[in-house]
């Protein structure tokens, strides 16, 4: 089933479609030539569109329905994944997946927001908007990783923590706050990767670590552009303007000292070549875990504290 795509990506989609059709045709010198021309045009079209992406277009890419999600990355770069369920308090939250896997043959804890592909799965996973039990499950797995001295990787891709009655009743704020506090002191290396939408506190609750990596077209923000526009402009249609003002792109956040490394995406975005994206991400994880493994636990925790301690800009006079 074709998914709706933002209009600025339509020329790319049309060219891909034409290429697929040409590929199906019988090989002749003529179709080979047409195919090559179409592929060249695709590369040029991508280059043209991606040379001047606006922050709002980046938001559309970060939310692209075909973008790889946490389970795609896990299966794309790890083996022997076992998903673990439940917070042992109330329920299992399918908006977050968590478990253990082998990465280059070594065990690792992996946790991430999980969006759905089909409508039914989207609903079941609540569009990756976790409830408190999701964050508590995540913390349970992270503490287990600490107990067994295993590194932790988190994949962040959520519009935000779920704003619902039940979530409030069960302490959404407390669940997020507790993760922030506990993650700050976990005695094992933590690498956090913003793969898609980094939606406010709901993202940060999996986002306290020794390295913060961000995919090139991911976003990370204190509030959604739509929410910001509704509050500050009293007009949700100003989301495009809000997206610019919020400085939510990977490049902006690298510049602000929040993000350690921006990971380049395949031409046209991660959804164009998920295996290539997973490979880039795997390389980056190898590199950072190798560095972090060298640190003694005390140094690891004190560096992590300093990392967040120095975030923020102010004047002292």
């Amino acid at each position: 089933m074709a998914q709706p795509v933002s209009s600025f990506l339509e020329p790319i989609g049309e060219l891909q479609q034409r290429i697929r059709e040409l590929e199906k045709e019988q090989t002749s010198a003529e179709t080979a030539q047409a195919l090559e021309a179409a592929r060249r045009e695709l590369r040029e079209t991508i280059d043209r569109i991606f040379a001047h992406l606006t922050p709002w277009q980046t938001c559309q890419l970060a939310r692209h329905p075909e973008r790889p999600y946490t389970l795609d990355y896990i299966h794309g770069m790890m083996t022997e994944f076992t998903e673990l369920h439940g917070d042992r308090r109330f329920a299992d939250d399918p908006a977050i997946v968590a478990g253990f896997a082998l990465f280059d043959g070594d065990p690792i804890a992996v946790i991430g927001h999980q969006k759905g592909r089909s409508t039914a799965e989207k609903v079941r996973r609540n569009f990756a908007m976790p409830r408190p039990e999701g964050y508590r499950k995540a913390l349970r797995i992270m503490k287990m990783a600490a107990r067994f001295s295993l590194p932790i990787v988190t994949f962040i891709d959520t519009p935000g923590a779920y704003p619902g009655i039940d979530a409030e009743e069960r302490g959404q704020a407390e669940a997020i706050a507790t993760n922030l506090l506990e993650m700050a002191r976990l005695p094992v290396p933590i690498v956090c990767v913003i793969t898609g939408e980094g939606g406010s506190g709901g993202a940060l609750a999996l986002g306290v670590g020794d390295r913060i990596l961000m995919l090139e077209h991911a976003i990370y923000s204190v509030i959604s552009p739509e929410g910001c526009a509704a509050i500050l402009w009293k007009d949700q249609s100003r989301a495009e303007q809000a997206a610019e003002a919020l400085r939510l792109t990977a490049r902006d956040l690298k510049h602000l000292g929040i993000v350690d490394e921006v990971l380049e995406e395949p031409a046209g975005g991660a959804q164009m070549d998920p295996p290539a994206m997973a490979a880039t991400l795997a390389d980056a994880l190898r590199h950072h875990f190798k560095q972090l493994r060298r640190l003694k636990t005390e140094a690891l925790i004190s560096k992590r504290y300093k990392k967040f301690r120095t975030m923020g800009k102010y004047l002292e006079r």
């Binding site: 204190v222 919020l246 301690r309």
Partner: peptide, 24 residues
């Protein structure tokens, strides 16, 4: 969090919570 300072405001949540962990 203060929207006008974007993700820097968000990070104050982590910064303060990390401090409180040390108090504990």
């Amino acid at each position: 969090a203060r929207m006008q300072e974007g993700v820097l405001s968000l990070m104050q949540m982590a910064k303060i919570s990390a401090g409180l962990a040390r108090m504990r």
